[in-house]
Design a protein around this nucleic acid. Sequence first.
RNA 1: GGGCGCAUAGCUCAGCGGUAGAGCGCCGCUCUUACAAAGCGGAUGUCGGCGGUUCAAAUCCGUCUGUGCCCACCA
Length: 892
Amino acid sequence: MTENTQQSPDRGPMDSAPELPTQYAPAEVEGPLYERWVERGYFEADAKSDKEPYTIVIPPPNVTGSLHLGHAFEHTLIDALTRRKRMQGFEVLWQPGMDHAGIATQNVVERELAKEGKSRHDLGREAFVERVWQWKAESGGQISGQMRRLGDGVAWSRERFTMDEGLSKAVQTIFKKLYDDELIYRAERIINWCPRCLTAISDIEVEYQDDDGELVSIRYGEGDASIVVATTRAETMLGDTAVAVHPEDERYKHLVGTEIELPLTGRRIPVVADEHVDPEFGTGAVKVTPAHDPNDFEIGRRHDLPSLTVLDEHGVITVHGPFLGLDRFEARSTIVGALRAEGRIVAEKRPYTHSVGHCSRCKTTLEPRQSMQWWVKVGPLAEAASKAVREGDVAIHPKEMESRYFGWVDNLHDWCISRQLWWGHRIPVWYGPNGEMVCVGPDDEAPTGEGWHQETDVLDTWFSSGLWPFSTLGWPEKTESVAKFYPNSVLVTGYDILFFWVVRMMMFGLYAMDGTPPFHTIALHGMVRDQFGKKMSKSFGNAVNPLDWMDKYGSDAVRFTLARGANPGVDVPIGEDWVQGSRNFANKLWNATRFAMMNGATVEGELPAADRLSATDRWILSRLNSVVAEVDAYYDDYQFAKLSDTLFHFAWDEVFDWYVELSKATFAKGGPEAEVSRRVLGEVLDVTLRLLHPVVPFVTETLWTTLTGRESVVIADWPATVLVPGADAPGGFRDAAAEQEIATVQQVVTEVRRFRSDQGLQPGQKVPARLDLTGTALAAHEDAMRSLLRLQPAGEGFSATASLPVAGATVALDLSGTIDVEAERKRLAKALAAAEKDKAQSTAKLGNEAFLAKAAEAAVEKIRKRLETAEADIERITAQLAALPGGNGTTA
RNA sequence: GGGCGCAUAGCUCAGCGGUAGAGCGCCGCUCUUACAAAGCGGAUGUCGGCGGUUCAAAUCCGUCUGUGCCCACCA
């Protein structure tokens, strides 16, 4: 043995592999790789190709702001799917692009303007929209920069934006078609109105929060003809046009049909009977304000009540009198004060917590408001969207999410699509001087002339993103891309926008594309959370910029961590420690490849024939084939966590810890056996790197190209089952006997290591020992085991025996040296107790007739094996105890 | 009010009828010529409580408790 112990970590044998430094430095490696991939056009998709298409559209990020960890997560999943399919030989299109995000973007730009002390009205519509386009140019560049850092393999030449000319044409086309089919209409309804954004918003854009309000009870009318109503919004009483009670309510029957006095107004309003009223709630009487409450609006309709608007678009009182011009909240207290002065407040106001709608964009308390808006009649569209999933044309993954989908799509209300904004697709309807209304299609001339003007409202942003799966491909033109890449293969998105986005795409896709759904599978992922499972948010201070972690640990580390956490449909916690762990894994890959290359691992030439392979080689190739099959199955089931974990453990534990260690002795010895192992190691590494590439593209590209000398792993073939010449089996090469044999080697080695550790022997210390493997299958592994265990030939003195039953023979391992007898006795006693317990349990189990009758054969076999092992263990341990100095074979 | 989900090792989660798993963390010992971002060894759980089905339950059923999310309503 050499005494070369003064090896500096910086120099030494690794000099023989100068291509790879001793540590993986992602920052130096990742940058140039991505640009090379793009330049070579690997990510572009050819509509003329005769390969089978595989299409995924990016859930378009809002042009505002930058990508967060949630995007990094989603992109990792899509990138992994598409990279694998590309390697499998599909014509892959990962469609990139961004969303104009109407109200969100308009608000951001308005805030920018506010810093300059200006409002959008100072600029005017045209200049304002111009300004938003400028903003988009800056912000959009930032997002694509982040996508490049992440390694997203998107077809950049096809990048689209929902406000592009082409996509705007798609919007106009479908609007016109819906209009002509009478699925779009204009009507006056109660809508959710944001008094700050000054626009209608749809039901799903409302965020409900519990707010503390006050419930006040007000007496309407006088004497016998009086009724007490309760309200949290006293200011709306100015617009009351009735009081409603339940038809069966005895307390108020005599008043139904009469009129009572509405305080402060001098008006008289009718008392009506309506089923909607809950006689149990409050006083059982409800004030009715049709113009400012959705339920009241319905009551008003049923009883033909007038609608009196008392608040304007800013939420300011519009009725003449003492309250004119008051803000809605001021008006509330002022009016309560006035009512109290008149003795109308019958009970003290009391605190009342109720949920109130807020604008999801600016958090302002919403005001229900009656106004003229544009609507999509969703009935037939939603029915088709529901049917497509119900009949299996579209699969939702994980399946549990289907109930959410149905819950929504089967109860959809008509969709309010008009927004009183400036940023967005302007509704293509022109109004004429005599009340004419013309919907203008993309190929029509807009009416001109005196008195004609276009609708000023724009469309809800989800209107255009609902067309994304085909508008990005050039629809309504009959392009080759539409023919090739529609329908999309899979939609990968978060469960949080199942309703906002997925349902819209389903409805529009089915409608526009003659009943062909936009995708066959919807794979839903969860939300990224922090390491304690808490939601990430800027205000809570636990939000992470993915770029920070990518700078520190590399993109691969961030991607691998996210993929390892990706169980279908459930939220993904992520912490910096975990990213570090993934970085360590990348480094491990790096160093294992270095080792392989230092030892001449190669991918050239056929694999050696089966009869030339050692059991170790056969074991790892057999395991490799299992892993290939497992990973494929997991990919097909969108089980990213499982496939990542499988690869992590296979690579680290089996290949790097065991195969490499067991092969070191072979490599050291050289000769034809080493030659065989070099080829096997090359094969195993090659396949493992290819399997890992979709998830950790950068480090695998660097290592794979170095190892193989080939162009790029991006365009390499996805691993198929490895075939060993001379041992072709239908399902690929498998060797259960070799797997069993190596498992035994592992057991022996681990046992001896534990013994050494328990004895306080230094790992590096050579121990004089005799390893007697004569007549067993393990004889072939003697060199490897000796080297692993640092065993020297036996010397004099005490000897302890470790033995395991292998293939009908017994391995005797004598360790000589100074032994801590007490420690060993204790350890063996513990092991003996465990084995005896195992034996007892297994015996009981096998004596159980019911178990034998009903259990699966494999289960019974497992128990039998366990019993056998336990019995052998007992025999062995008893012998070891007996061999201890002063021992008599029995335990205390 | 309705619906869905979750409670497993210190933390975050897999497992979902046959004798408890991972990552990180923790405790030892080691710079053993790929890697200390490493190696080796070790400890840690009445699988939320209670009942039931079964030869057998973390796993199925019921129930309670805690917790999260979605939807609806809230005068």
